[in-house]
Design a protein around this nucleic acid. Sequence first.
DNA 1: TTGTATGCGTTATCAG
DNA 2: CTGATAACGCATACAA
Lengths: 352, 352
Amino acid sequence: MKKVPGTAANTNRIKPPPSQQVVTLEMVAKAAGVSPSTVSRILNGTAQVSELKRQSVEQAVAELGFVPNPMARGLAGGRTWSIGVITQAIDSPFYGMALAAIEQVLDQAGYSALYVSGHWDAKAEAKCIDVLRSRRVDGIIVLNGRLSDQALRACAKSTPLVVTGRSLSAPHLYTLNFDSFEGGRLATQHLIDLGHRRIAFIAGLSNHADANERLRGYRHALDQASIGFDPALMAAGNFLEDGGLKAVENWLTNGVKFTAIFAANDQMAFGAALGLHRHGLRVPHDVALMGFDDLPMATYCVPPLTSIHESPSELGTLSAQSLLQLLGGQKPTAQVPAPRLVVRASSDPAAV
Amino acid sequence: MKKVPGTAANTNRIKPPPSQQVVTLEMVAKAAGVSPSTVSRILNGTAQVSELKRQSVEQAVAELGFVPNPMARGLAGGRTWSIGVITQAIDSPFYGMALAAIEQVLDQAGYSALYVSGHWDAKAEAKCIDVLRSRRVDGIIVLNGRLSDQALRACAKSTPLVVTGRSLSAPHLYTLNFDSFEGGRLATQHLIDLGHRRIAFIAGLSNHADANERLRGYRHALDQASIGFDPALMAAGNFLEDGGLKAVENWLTNGVKFTAIFAANDQMAFGAALGLHRHGLRVPHDVALMGFDDLPMATYCVPPLTSIHESPSELGTLSAQSLLQLLGGQKPTAQVPAPRLVVRASSDPAAV
DNA sequence: TTGTATGCGTTATCAG
DNA sequence: CTGATAACGCATACAA
């Protein structure tokens, strides 16, 4: 049996739950002695209304405890007042913070957020977009997705879009790009400044734009310091703890030598730390370690992790605000703050 | 100016974005040569329909790419196909996993989830419920909330409710309670079995039911082992890393002696580990450490953390399924699995 | 400035 | 089994 999106044919239910609808706009209108349209206008600020009527309406609204029905609003107004948010993993600490911030901004503007997870998979992500559009969301925020630029442009034609983690421009589309290249460069430079020459790199997902930028930053810094790039010092990662662990395990069992590790995100750095620990190597005395993202946990792990600060909550706030502007017909101008190095004990015993 | 929930009077927008509505049910009906009602019936499985018509309708749906409009469905059917989920912090690793699981179950049943955060505050949580009800959600899942039993019962009268982290029964209400008492007991017993007698305890938020149960389990285990409860060995915590850190700092600067620490959740245990580290104490050689929750990070921190396994994703799955049953007029019967001790290096150097 | 009438896309209640 | 028809609650041209 085929399944139409948004339909649940074989959900077994006995009878619909009792409607909780109580007060309608019409009832408010009657109570306030005005027409429904006037109430609507007042509630939406659609037109000028005499102060007298406004007051009686507001009073009626308060007394009756009127709450507009979003379904009806959506049907009539052609707007659902909901925003789709595509994240790769809602349970990732990094995205969780961004989502919290997004929720906050949207809620304040009267929108609610619909979160869906792409699981780092372009195909799944495309399906997410379908789901969101079937829900008729008014706009979509894509947090570091993997869809092609082309797919995003196409999507923006029918739904305003804010995308993080890349730069491109198109109508109804705004991108918010963190400078991962500079972040990668900063991180590597920091290790070089500390005197390291054999700096291993645990990369992120290879078809992820941010991951490649971080790698580019790493290589650029090496170049600038006239340190040759050694492919043996680079490992493929997956942005998760186990990826970092495996990379280190591999290097150590193969006798690869290094004095520092730069992981393309904190989660992999945590895994790397465990790998080093298992082999009796101490951070930072035997190997300096640094991550990328500056998750809250970076402050609390042992030893605390040096990282590149990237504020997911700020990213979330900015993307939500930008989408709101897009929805309002304005042109967003927000920019993501520049990367910032946060030195902690994992790279420098003298640091906090 | 007063603000009606669900209304955004002063959002400055220029003009509504172009509606993306394309294919309506009516168009499908025409294309298939049947009435709209028949199409609706087929899509919802509301009644028996001749196989012939079914096929032509399904074909028309596929060809036209019809997707039902949830707003219209909601208005007409009195159901929004959305479920509210109240969590304390969407950016918490523990809840993130639960949310991911909930999303998965609900999505499969054609529902979408609306997440809102209560921030560990009963008042904020009450507001969350208001927001969700203003959105006319068909049901609500409350993950370890702080509202009173009474408030929950009242809420359940108008909206089916699934609540985790407590036990009570009422119509349209189902609770899913993890046995925190047994978890606390298991944890403490484990440390006692290891030979510890001076076991410090970092408590959770004091007005949080789970936290108190964990404490009760701790005290019970001590009692059973005839170890007196020493108030000096107990610290108030906040379920966050810094709470654990502060507790340890306090004890150590005050010269309190202990050989093991049991933190009421993993996040506080992480903070505690850092505190011990700062004072040159090694885990587990100088102090054994255990947490509660078994977050993914417990596997990867240094040293890996012994914990009580509680599966947030399973909790999420079960609560979503239970709510679906409630919505279907059935009586949920799901039970949360029993607590399980996971021994790692933080309490036992011989462990993985 | 304000009220009236119509329509948004479905589901549900009727007859047939 | 199937097709009209009436809601659902609100926003918006249009008229006043």
